[in-house]
Design a protein around this nucleic acid. Structure first.
Length: 294
DNA sequence: GTATGTACCTGTTTGC
DNA sequence: TGCAAACAGGTACATA
């Protein structure tokens, strides 16, 4: 489950291993991962042959590889995507979807897009070398030096949605997924259903700080991994999961107060929180009980 | 513009 | 034993 720290690890790996390489061949083994590319699999491949990769960039969980003609390969790892740099001779991974044969600085190696569940994908972004227009609506992430803390706090406090939903809104702040949203909320002692406009300025500032801390810590440790689905560009797993306080810890004691962590359904996924440390405002609790949505 | 719900996708786990 | 349902969840999209 790649979140921002994992994607950054992949980006750094790509910068080191494929920048300067030229794409000699493209083999699309499954159409779905290139579904966002209007010209289809053949058009995707044709647009990339003989192009040289000149960079490796990221915004939120999107990655892109600027090319020497001003276009870019735009990618998202989705739930289970991996970008691997492998020797050409390495056996194909079970869920190998797209392979790029490389020459030049990466001669003898391939860039491979492997994705079991295929929520991720690749496309060629015309003129997207600097910032692909397809992702212009994605906000900066809190590790970006140009992230505007004050503007984020103001926008957060103007919204009536629950704060967890707002943390997952990539137009407001990018790079925060379900795991780190739960961790940041646990650290901030805030319940995810608390409306944005019911946060004090101080609470909003602290929440942002915790989100940033969680991400920085995960990044320092090489990213989170719960199973074999996520590995970095060389195929090594991260190990941040040892540091989680809330996510995935249903019925285990809260690390602060010992109360069992609770899991509730939220947006077709799960939320984990401490029912003692992270209380819901009374008015929200009343509304939730009336609608039966807990 | 904002709020909310759902489709997409497949391998694994859980339940009957 | 075998099948079906639940589950994992980021994003785009539809609807109000």
């Amino acid at each position: 489950m790649p979140e921002l720290p994992e994607v950054e690890v992949v980006r750094a790996g790509l910068e080191r291993h494929v920048v300067g390489a030229t794409i000699a061949a493209v083999d699309v083994l499954h159409d779905r991962p290139v579904r966002r590319h209007p010209a289809g699999a053949s058009g995707f491949a044709a647009a990339l042959i003989d192009r040289r990769i000149v960079g490796a960039r990221r915004r939120g969980k999107y990655l892109w590889l600027p090319l020497d003609d001003g276009d870019a390969i735009l990618g998202h790892l989705g739930m289970s995507g991996q970008l691997l740099v492998q020797p050409t001779s390495a056996p194909a991974e079970r869920h190998l979807r797209v392979r790029f044969a490389l020459t030049g600085t990466a001669h003898g190696r391939e860039l491979r897009f492997v994705d079991q569940r295929m929520f991720g994908g690749l496309s060629v972004s015309a003129g997207g070398a600097d910032l692909p227009p397809e992702i212009a609506h994605i906000a900066r992430d809190p590790l970006d030096p140009e992230f505007d803390d004050a503007a984020f706090v103001a926008r957060l406090r103007a919204r009536t949605s629950g704060v967890k939903r707002l943390l997952l809104d990539q137009g407001l702040i990018s790079g925060v997924g379900n795991i780190y949203a739960d961790e940041a909320l646990w650290r901030a002692r805030l319940h995810g259903e608390r409306p944005g406009d019911r946060l004090t300025r101080r609470q909003a500032v602290e929440l942002l700080g915790h989100a940033r801390d969680v991400m920085n810590e995960a990044l320092a440790q090489g990213g989170t991994s719960f199973d074999a689905l996520y590995v970095n560009v060389n195929g090594e797993s991260g190990y941040f999961d040892r540091s989680l306080h809330a996510y995935g810890r249903e019925a285990e004691p809260c690390d602060r107060c010992g109360t069992p962590i609770r899991r509730v359904a939220f947006m077709n996924r799960s939320s984990y929180f401490c029912p003692r440390c992270q209380t819901v405002p009374r008015s929200v609790r009343t509304t939730a009980s009336r609608t039966g949505s807990a």
